[in-house]
Amino acid sequence: MSIRNKYEEELTTVFNKLIAMCRTVEIAIEKSVNSLVHRDTELAGEVIKEDKNVDNLEHEIEQDCLKILLMEHPVASDFRDVSAALKMITDLERIADQAADISEITFQFGEESFIKEPFHIKEMAKLATGMVKDSVQSYINRDLELARSLDRRDDGVDNLFGKIKGELVELIKKDGRNADQAILFMMIAKYIERIADHAVNIGEWVEYAITGYHKIG
């Protein structure tokens, strides 16, 4: 029986806030890609505006974790849980920044029709969003297999990135006027590829929280 009820409550608060932060980040990615696909600048504006909410959640969780470190002096798995949470929120915050970056690019497309429908970008975003969701889920459920699967799933995102890059190069070769949009699509694809990398980082911190081992690089 635990004699650390207060600590358990504090950690549960952090868990709940992490779930909320993760959900907010997932929605930001979905909205940013939808704003691109549907050329919806109003939605894109929302993503940029709502990035502040993620920053606030990051700050709140950071404060909660620092308070736990100061007041509870956690050790062993408690220490790993809190340190992992502290590291994970940095990745989640970066992911939200990248969603906002995608929305900012959406504004740059203007009224011109797309040089190509962004099917693969949508597909990439779907994979990356699933990875972000599972990364935080693996932490909450202490699911080592799920955390470790992220590295493998990142290969799928990287393959799509390679595919998009190849298509964009072909479009530029075909007609130089495609270059402006191709560069914008390329940046978006790169942002999504980075989002997946951040999910892998989170998975590595989850592995640390569960096993004490942290993969370098």
């Binding site: 029986m1 004699i3 650390r4 956690p74 050790v75």
Partner: peptide, 11 residues
Amino acid sequence: RTENYITGRFG
């Protein structure tokens, strides 16, 4: 047992 003791979850 070490984990339980140092984290205050003994018993």
